[in-house]
Design a protein around this nucleic acid. Structure first.
Lengths: 224, 224
DNA sequence: TACCCGAACCAATTCTGCATTGGTTCGCTT
DNA sequence: AAGCGAACCAATGCAGAATTGGTTCGGGTA
């Protein structure tokens, strides 16, 4: 007769874990199977598992299973939460703080082909026949700069920022048949940014981007 | 007999889109159905769709369908996705790019009580009896700087960055009984940052933060 | 009485097979 | 030469079955 005290079950469970040599984060057998193979009732096994979980040795989730190690972080950057808490002014503030430094990284790390893509997107924006298409290529240009930073984390943060921006400025899409005037302020500002990146001049790129965003901010106030 | 030249098909397709009044981002009928309802072969329809896609009017994806508007950017606000794609070096690069500008905003916007909190957290970090507690107060200090920027969006981005950082440097927690030495490099660097913020000197705050993070980065390399 | 086992059930999740969809190729017709 | 129809491919979506941790209840056992 094998004793099935709490301590005994727990001990046998630990033995099993040590023997199984599970990779970190690996999955244990289902409770039903494990109970049978350990010759223990399910409730007793669950008590032992609860102890291990309290110790942080394993973690469990309904429908998924029981896993070794600690529960992986599940925090998604909740864009909706940010949207509800912020406003267009804050968004511009964040852009002015963040994007110039992204541009600086891009100047230091962009590949030649990425610089060519920047130029292409810039030209497409200039030649856009409608405001909507202009904004589309403007967005593409700013994201390409993020890609050129060669830092996937910076790019991820930039995407988050843009997602919030789009959500906040919802419904402000200008879909008029009018096209941006040939002397639109952004055109020269874009050119300065791209030139600075092409010249590998990080500080100039950051300055140009900052100036561009400030100019956009000023225009935003005027429109209201 | 209806003419089925490329231009005619394209025109009829545009008509259909205008008539259908699809909501932005709405899905078009499958190519097979649409081809039949327009009395056109599938290949001809696909040629017209390719044109619209080049214009950015629609976007398509195998298995999904054809949709109006622009292809939504693969916005990975999911921190887990970022973690799998990045590495400690990138994380430091992003911190060096981002946090100095947050400090600059904090210098311009911090309230007196927030500055007092900064000083308090800084002292707690200096007096921490273990490395783990030091890191806890160090984290608190950096987040307080984010709060002091008075920009909830910047704060949200900073939180995202920190979540990724914690996940990437997983398992590097120093839980030794040893305490940080009294001349630890971070102490003076923290002081410079907080002083600059208290003096409302944005540029100095940004510089001090950049210097601090570079110092941390250098120390990180040494440890390896 | 106190505890454990077995069974049944619940809700969250995963798995699986099938239908759908854009992309491609191949004869055939016009 | 170009479009049409058909067939096929791979990626995706979808619905239902199977799985899994969490919970409850009755019965047995010490």
């Amino acid at each position: 007769m094998i004793e099935n005290t709490d301590a005994a079950v727990l001990s046998r469970l630990r033995d099993f874990l040590a023997t199984a040599q599970l990779p970190d984060g690996g999955r244990l057998p289902p409770e039903r199977d494990l109970a049978e193979s350990l010759d223990v009732g399910r409730s007793a096994l669950r008590k032992a598992l609860a102890t291990l979980q309290a110790e942080g040795v394993v973690w469990r989730h309904v429908g998924k299973g029981t896993f070794t190690g600690e529960r992986p972080i599940d925090t998604v950057a909740d864009i909706n939460a940010m949207v509800h808490r912020t406003n267009p002014l804050e968004v511009m503030g964040a852009r002015i703080a963040f994007e110039p430094e992204v541009a600086r990284c891009a100047a230091l790390n962009a590949t030649p082909s990425q610089i060519a893509e920047l130029r292409s997107a810039m030209l497409k924006a200039q030649q856009a026949p409608t405001w909507r298409l202009y904004e589309q290529w403007d967005n593409r240009l700013h994201r390409l700069i993020g890609e050129a930073s060669q830092n996937s984390l910076l790019l991820g943060l930039l995407d988050t920022l843009n997602a919030v921006r789009r959500a906040v400025t919802w419904g402000r899409l200008r879909d008029t048949p009018v096209r941006p005037p040939p002397d639109h302020h952004s055109f020269e500002e874009h050119a300065r940014i791209v030139d600075a990146i092409a010249n590998r001049d990080g500080s100039a790129a950051a300055d140009a981007m900052r100036r561009h965003l400030r100019s956009v901010e000023g225009h935003m106030r005027d429109v209201r």
